[in-house]
Amino acid sequence: MGVKVEDFDLDRENTWCPGCGNFAILDTVKKSLANLGLPPNEVMVVSGIGQAGKMPGHFRVNTFNVLHGRVLPAATGISLANHELKILAIGGDGDGLAEGGNHLIHAARRNINVTYMMHNNMVYGLTKGQVSPTSDEGLKTPTTPGGNPVAGLNPVLMLLGLKASFVARSFSGSKEQLGSIIERAIQKPGFAFIDILQPCPSFNKVNTHGWFKKRVFDINEEGHKPDNLCEAFQAAMEWGERIPTGIFYDEPEARPVFNEVLFGSQEQPLLEAELNPLDIKEMIKEHL
């Protein structure tokens, strides 16, 4: 019995603005999960706060919507309790790089078995347009009325610097590419990071759908092979008139994922381990 896209349908009012890049990302995720044959009850979506954080409110999956910036610690805890779940972590650029920056560093370092989709509209959508860590220099926002005084950071370069297992970028307007990257990321054991560019039609009048559309190109189509970290850095350096997307790095020799590091290749999730107080009787003896 196959999994259908409709299995993920959820009848709830959607409050995203018309033209929001999130709609395309949502459709693509549902399709990818169906393509991979993952039923809703085996998929775990952890999300933060922001317009991206609302995404699991719009499709049927297990959902833990936590606090701003705390997506990855929650996903880490869940992945240790039950490594059999397919875990997606979803949050925006403010969630992942401002409030949650420290967690992103350590989630990549631990190599938790999680696909992290960072929706990047280069602005704060939920709180109405303030500057983000990825806003370009000069962007005028309510909190940078004279223009963003500093350059935005490049999340792909950052994650390559952290030697994340899988680092990619896509665009909500390139659904086919996005879908294939999401499917590969979910199948990749370990921490898979996708920087998903998306327009915010309400609050970012510079980095619009058209602006992205004109600039994005697929590095893999242009011959980039994702098995070399140095070349991945080289490809990721570019930003401006041309914006590279695709899979920058897909670690060729997979490292063990975090739960394997802690437990070895466990069969039984911690969740299923029996609670038996007598398990500690040897420890009591050590105090005699």
């Binding site: 880490t76 805890g77 869940i78 309790a81 967690h103 969740l271």
Partner: peptide, 13 residues
Amino acid sequence: SAIIMSIGASYAG
């Protein structure tokens, strides 16, 4: 992170 990880693990059972 410590408390959020623990909350995640507890949510998962």
